[in-house]
Design a protein around this nucleic acid. Structure first.
Length: 226
DNA sequence: GCGACAG
DNA sequence: ATCTTGTCGC
């Protein structure tokens, strides 16, 4: 069973959550990986419209072949609403339950959302990294904060996302002539490595394989097909 | 005060 | 996030 560090409880008000982020942000470390990763995990959450039941899942794959080597799915209840900037408080609790069910601890974790590309530099990927105590990064489908110049249309091209004079992430093209995804380091990793790993998880779709498979897993779980 | 706003 | 088929463009 995979373990994590219970840094704090999750029953907070939105105001308390923001204050906690301001405190936790100082523990985030943006730095190169200390060893070559062999496995990577993708995680995601699914809901039924107007319902608070959460379907959370994590899929672990080998980086070289992209084959799935482990996965876990759990069903629970959301106790925090969706508020831009506070996504982690709504999704991480269920993801930690799924994490505990894993038989394989992944070398790095990709989140469906942002890491440092956040108003307080502590998006779900960064917050999750502090709990999992291992390399994490975010790969989102849309922007929360920051501006960037449109990257060239070819897969692999990217341009920096800026916010208050900081480079917080990158708009990365994962497929020719398709909208970019937004990559940002979460914890214990740097932007260049996060970009490299995202490109290495290519399955021919805009969304990288870890997140895509986690998405398929939680939707199947929600529909009772898993 | 107004508009923006990950999933 | 979720509700949903066909359709336009490369």
């Amino acid at each position: 069973m995979a373990e994590y560090i219970p840094l704090h409880n999750w029953n907070l008000s939105a105001t308390e959550a923001v204050a906690l982020q301001q405190q936790l942000r100082h523990q985030i470390r943006i730095e190169p990986l200390t060893s070559q990763p062999k496995t990577i995990a993708g995680c995601d959450i699914s809901f039924n419209k107007f319902e608070e039941t959460v379907y959370a899942g994590i899929v672990v794959l080998r980086l070289d072949t992209l084959e799935t080597i482990d996965q876990s799915g759990v069903i629970s209840k959301a106790t925090f609403p969706y508020i831009p900037g506070l996504l982690s408080f709504r999704e991480i609790p269920a993801l930690l339950d799924a994490w505990q069910q894993l038989q394989t601890v992944p070398d790095v974790v990709m989140f469906d959302g942002h890491g440092t590309a956040h108003p307080r530099r502590i998006g779900i990927a960064s917050h999750g990294g502090l709990f999992l105590n291992r390399p994490t990064f975010g790969c989102g489908k849309s922007v929360l904060v920051g501006k960037y110049d449109e990257p060239a249309p070819e897969r692999g091209s990217w341009s920096p996302m800026r916010h208050h004079n900081d480079i917080i992430g990158a708009a990365l093209r994962t497929k020719n002539k398709v909208n970019p995804v937004y990559v940002s380091p979460g914890h214990l990793i740097d932007l260049d490595t996060a970009i490299d790993l995202t490109l290495r998880c290519d399955g021919g779709y805009r969304i990288p394989e870890p997140t895509r498979r986690a998405h398929n897993l939680v939707n199947a779980l929600r529909r009772g097909e898993a």
